[in-house]
Design a protein around this nucleic acid. Structure first.
Lengths: 187, 187
DNA sequence: ATCTTCATGTAATAAGTTACATGATTAA
DNA sequence: TTAATCATGTAACTTATTACATGAAGAT
């Protein structure tokens, strides 16, 4: 087994979510709140993060010297804007260039139910598949909403977020189509 | 927000992994070891479980009266075969027929890297996509290996495991195809 | 003989969610 | 004036992984 986290020299190894946050700070300085919005508005379909992870992780990244806090104020209001440091950029690049094992996991309770559907009536199996399809179709709609923003970034020279988004749309379209086929199969 | 777990009357609510285990015991009595094998050999691509979850969960299911242990012996060796009880079957059916929220999550570090690939050279982005494709192709091969077993179950009247498996193969084929297209895009 | 599979479990740790608490600013 | 958005954080809890320990049975 290989090490599962990137560790450059000393200090606590960087967790996968830490890398995600660092990556988002790679393109712009952000507050914890901004990071949560960015996660939800772009990488959420393959990588989620809650405030309960983000704020503590930002502190860990800071004490590891990978980000620095530029405590700005907006109005009279406290606001901590984090930006990536040179060391942070190095760590990020090192991760992106490494050949470490990539975790890929899926947890889909809809498929779990589908798998066990021999135990229930056709109607119940059908209801489950319909719910799955509705979910994937909703995902496609949500992803399409962020398409314009992604196109802007692409035209500004950052094409990967756009390509990733298109991949996500395709993925959920394929899953929705599979559900539709299963609905026919069960009818 | 709705309750996230199925709770029939009193006792500890049943966790998602508990439901997965109960579902597997729905078709045959099994040991903890058998359950691990069954998970790895069928539902793993959308629902994983480790021994560290399985053995404690079996005890919880037992004290909730949803499974019973028929302590069999094979050779001179200790062996705990669990089987589902009538109450367990009720709980399983109730879950399969309920309209509770279905958790669907994905964590894909390859896509995370891809998303951030504007920060690295074309070569590094390409290496990452190739690794992703290799992974999905390996998944397709592994799933195809269990196809015969699945066909047998289908011919014996349990068709959903087969349909689920075909869905998984399609899913990973689609992802591999997307990777191939991205490789072209980057060349 | 020795390797693989069968078999059971726990302890430490890591990762992540949910609920809660608090309050300012901005748009309608 | 009221709702939405911006903003920060923690505590309790749940969930899951990893590493370890142990050993018999069956195959080569």
């Amino acid at each position: 087994m290989e090490r599962q986290s990137t560790n450059d020299g000393a200090g606590t190894p960087l967790s996968a979510t830490g890398r995600a946050i660092l990556g988002l700070l790679g393109s712009a300085p952000r507050t914890g709140y901004d990071i949560k919005s960015a996660v939800d508005g772009s990488i959420r379909f393959f990588w989620a993060a809650s405030y309960g992870q983000i704020y503590p992780e930002l502190k860990r990244l800071e004490s590891a010297g990978l980000v620095r806090v530029a405590s700005a104020e907006k109005g009279g209001r406290r606001r901590s804007v984090y930006e990536i440091t040179a060391a942070g950029r190095d760590a990020l690049q090192a991760w992106l260039a490494s050949d470490a094992e990539l975790t890929t996991e899926m947890r889909d309770e809809g498929l779990l139910r589908f798998f066990f559907s021999d135990l229930v009536d056709r109607e119940e199996a059908l209801a489950n598949v319909r719910a799955m399809r509705a979910h994937h179709e909703a995902m496609v709609r949500r992803l399409r909403e962020i398409e314009p923003k992604s196109i802007q970034a692409r035209d500004a020279g950052r094409r990967f977020p756009y390509l990733t988004l298109m991949g996500g749309i395709e993925l959920h379209e394929q899953r929705a189509a599979w559900c539709a086929r299963m609905e026919k199969e069960l009818s």
